[in-house]
Design a protein around this nucleic acid. Sequence first.
DNA 1: CTGAAAGCGCTTACAG
DNA 2: CTGAAAGCGCTTACAG
Lengths: 343, 343
Amino acid sequence: MAEAKPEKKNDRVTIREVAEDAGVSVAAVSKVLREAYGVSESLRSKVRASMNKLNYRPLASARGMRGQTYTLGLVLPDIRNPFFADILAGVNSALERTQYQLMMGTSHSQGLAEEALVEAMIDRQMDGIIMIGTTEYMDRLGSIAKQKPLVTIGHHAETSQLFDTVNNDDQLGARLVVKHLLANGFRNIAMLSLASTTSTILSERELGYRREMIENGLGENINIIRAPQTLREVQIAARRLLEGPSKPEALFCWTDFIALEVISVATELGLRIPQDLAIVGYDNTMYCDFAQNGLTSVDQSGELLGLQSARLVIERIRGRAEAEHFVVTPRVVARSSSKRSAV
Amino acid sequence: MAEAKPEKKNDRVTIREVAEDAGVSVAAVSKVLREAYGVSESLRSKVRASMNKLNYRPLASARGMRGQTYTLGLVLPDIRNPFFADILAGVNSALERTQYQLMMGTSHSQGLAEEALVEAMIDRQMDGIIMIGTTEYMDRLGSIAKQKPLVTIGHHAETSQLFDTVNNDDQLGARLVVKHLLANGFRNIAMLSLASTTSTILSERELGYRREMIENGLGENINIIRAPQTLREVQIAARRLLEGPSKPEALFCWTDFIALEVISVATELGLRIPQDLAIVGYDNTMYCDFAQNGLTSVDQSGELLGLQSARLVIERIRGRAEAEHFVVTPRVVARSSSKRSAV
DNA sequence: CTGAAAGCGCTTACAG
DNA sequence: CTGAAAGCGCTTACAG
């Protein structure tokens, strides 16, 4: 409680002090730091010893002025969706033994525009950016990619050469849901989608749903409801559908998060699940396993998606110029919310 | 698709270009940027015009070399707990009209030590740091606070002069839970707490639970089970308790997230809620409202906590040296998981 | 293999 | 009120 403010920054060890302590030049220390070529073993060990002794940690901003900041930016549309926790686990595990540190930012949840967040990350010298479930248009993504290495998760742009994408096969995922519901005797299947003009994963899922319905002669039962992501809007849309004249036998929800809300609405309306209404989600998040939900869902390996995105963005940083597009094959994980023992 | 890499950074407008365009000095532009004193209206408007015309955005790292980066760091122990989304909403809304940008990092979820994350944020020149549910010891927090303005959420250190704290009254919250359960006819009340040697919010909640039980002559019924935060450990602990000889009538869980897991286990065991087991959580997160959970919980206004923490950390950055400790009064939000119509 | 010097884009005293 | 110069802590060519 004695010496308060003065040491606020002065206690920070700089590369110069390390150099002096080791009896070498600043440039030499920098080389050791970056694990660059052309450093003798003896110089390296001398410098390493001084670094440890002085407890030296380089200042990322200073490094960023000329080189890298060793920071990766992760853009999330909304921290509430539990699926993002799975992705994050994968990203973090990929970064574990590297020098890179992840910094996250959320956009929609508080009205902060996604574009403003990405700009903030560029201004903060992120070495690379991973965007989850972006709502940006292609030209905008291209312009971001020209400034920083970019990987998107949950956005289909497999023809893009400017950035990498990581996805599951959303069209297939939706088809598998319909197949699963049909196999369990449900034929009047509706889909609860997201009101979005730019989401390519949603258009793929809708397409898969449509096609599979049509191929099974159920084209007349196709019913896609689109609602914004807020709980209130979802609740209103679900209520309207389930109380209305065209109440379906089964409802395919675009993400677990929303499906849980539908389970809640259905329960309040006194509907039994799955007898009166089967429900299927997407993402197979941890909440699906809870007995009170028992939610059938599509597993797209969020952790794997996260892992791959980190790998790809680091490769880009290291110079890869050709785009890579990673795709996971999804699978249905059946639980009580959609299993009808007897048709 | 023509001019690819070369412009990768060259397209960035610098303060020098703005100065040239406006016909003033670089220092003058800097002053306008920082909204510093001693700039004439005419110079300011000239500079502003050039900034807009050239679409100038300052580089945070460069600013950080001498001044601030206008970046705040938020340390989360785990992105999975939905309570953090509420806090985040508050932080973001407080930052909305400021120059500050929030960057989050998670620690425990992937084995990354909290300490390493905080160091990474210091190395990246965060102007201030907000730590949620920290597990660091007091001396370590003091040492962080000496390097950067620090505010903790969910950590009791009301006597600290080195950093600010934002909390709800956890002891009271626990007392209210016991009172509520007693009023609903439950007397054999157990508590599911977190296995942690450093969490002060847990020790406060445990203390409140103990005291309220004792003051109601139920000292003999006190039963605190402590489990790590992983779903598996919670499941094992819950199973053991609910299948064992000392199965309680009611279980107070330290956070909603864990209570939802207990609802799942109880449901699997065929227990009716609340007839066979009443359950109460803490944090009053959105999942409590879902009909399949109907979870009674303690509201501690996560959004308000977040808002205050952002306010306090910015005040610290601006020079406030005396500590402030903000405390919210919690309240019980009763739902079906704990309401017994007839005793 | 090693080092001296310039420079990244800002802010900060200090003159005028 | 305005500006020239130094400097923040690194990396990057470029010599030696």
